[in-house]
């Protein structure tokens, strides 16, 4: 039998991989994708917990799913703006290496 634990562990692993991607990659597109992965991991946990609660209660329970719905919407917005920024950075610096975007250093 598949228990909630498994989903949680899977979610944690996916989240960690996403975080790792954010930290070690220098391509902003990959970093963005990693962020999407982390959001997905969180979404998976939401749905799993919602399902667990639904089964315990014995009646339909949508709050977890609705939250995921919102996350997807926000992610879409984020991607739209983020990609626009990346394009803009590329236009000025002619590169997408974020290690070269460090003019705000102290």
């Amino acid at each position: 039998m598949v228990s909630v634990n498994y989903y949680i562990i899977l979610s944690a692993i996916l989240f960690t991989i996403g975080a790792l991607g954010v930290l070690i990659r220098r391509n902003p597109l990959i970093i963005f994708m990693s962020i999407e992965l982390m959001l997905n991991a969180a979404n998976l946990a939401f749905v799993a917990f919602g399902r667990s609660f639904e089964l315990t209660q014995g009646k339909p329970f949508f709050t977890g799913q609705i939250f995921v719905f919102f996350v997807i919407a926000v992610a879409a917005a984020e991607v739209a703006v983020g990609l626009a920024l990346i394009v803009e950075i590329f236009k000025t610096k002619n590169t997408v290496n974020i290690d070269e975007v460090n003019s705000l250093k102290g």
Partner: peptide
């Protein structure tokens, strides 16, 4: 943390 605080061993049919 997730497993120790809430040991969710419930099976998900």
């Amino acid at each position: 943390l997730l497993l120790s605080r809430a040991p969710l061993t419930q099976a998900l049919a």
